[in-house]
Amino acid sequence: MALAIEIAGIQKRFALRHTRSLKETVLWLLKGRKGDLSKTFAALNDVSLTVEEGETVALLGFNGSGKSTLLKHISGVMLPDTGTVRTRGRVAGLIEVGAGFHPDLSGRDNVFLNGAILGMSEKDIHRQFDSIVDFAEIGEFIDTEVRFYSSGMYLRLAFSVAVHTDPNVFLIDEILAVGDEPFQRKCISKIKELAEAGKTLVVVSHDLELIGQICRRGVVLEKGRIVHDAPVAEAIAHIRGQ
């Protein structure tokens, strides 16, 4: 089967800058301390991973393990310092609530803006518009500026746009925790539909029960490295220390 995602030896480092007062900074320099006032840490360290078309994969790990950073590299939001990331087909999903939305534009305008960012043509957006609004359940607010939306309204509209792009690869980062329970169930049902349709799914979530329902494979990260890659039940057991 063809590969939907191919990641080879990627590394990503971030600076940890320590806030100091002017007095502390002057004393630091007078004492002859060298270098800048920051350290770096490896968010991802030589990560390689392949995902076949149609696979449903969970990225698992404790806070700071590198899950979300890896997902952002797959989405193209971040670029690695070294290594390569390749994806096949249209990639869409939810990395952050309201990402790609402009607060001064209405929900209607943001549907067209976000849809275009995710690769939809204007014709496709017009064709799918009513369905997007119906799924999001915000019809009466669609012409309101999104700055006045609650986080749940952001989620519903962002998720609706993303699933209507008909993506080949769908990415989700802990985002379903924001919505209310009825909409979470609706989203989960839609995600299962995507999986059954042969779409590739990569999910980050601390909800291990949900992961067990949606995904078949689990990849466990620890301190920026992949430490376990197995069927999802085994990966969940690894996380739980069983």
Rank of each mutant, 00 (worst) to 15 (best):
A4Q: 06
I7C: 05
I10S: 01
R17K: 14
R20C: 06
R20W: 11
S21T: 15
L22W: 02
V26W: 02
V26L: 12
L27S: 00
K31V: 10
G32E: 02
R33N: 15
K39C: 06
K39G: 05
D46R: 09
E52R: 15
E55V: 07
S65Q: 10
G66Q: 10
V77M: 02
P80A: 06
T82C: 13
R88I: 01
I95T: 02
E96M: 03
F101C: 05
P103W: 01
S106T: 15
D109K: 09
L113C: 02
L113I: 11
D124R: 12
H126Q: 13
S131M: 11
V133L: 02
I138E: 00
G139Q: 07
F141Q: 11
I142P: 03
T144I: 10
V146D: 00
Y149A: 01
S150P: 04
S151P: 05
M153N: 00
A158D: 00
V161T: 02
A162L: 03
T165C: 08
D166C: 08
D166Y: 03
N168Q: 15
I172Q: 02
I172K: 00
I172P: 02
G179P: 00
G179K: 00
R185K: 15
K186E: 09
C187W: 07
I188H: 03
S189R: 12
A195E: 07
E196S: 14
A197D: 14
L201P: 11
V204Y: 11
S205P: 06
H206K: 02
L210F: 09
V219P: 01
L221Q: 13
E222K: 15
K223F: 05
G224Y: 06
V227F: 09
D229N: 13
A230Y: 04
V232T: 11
R240G: 10
R240P: 02
G241T: 09
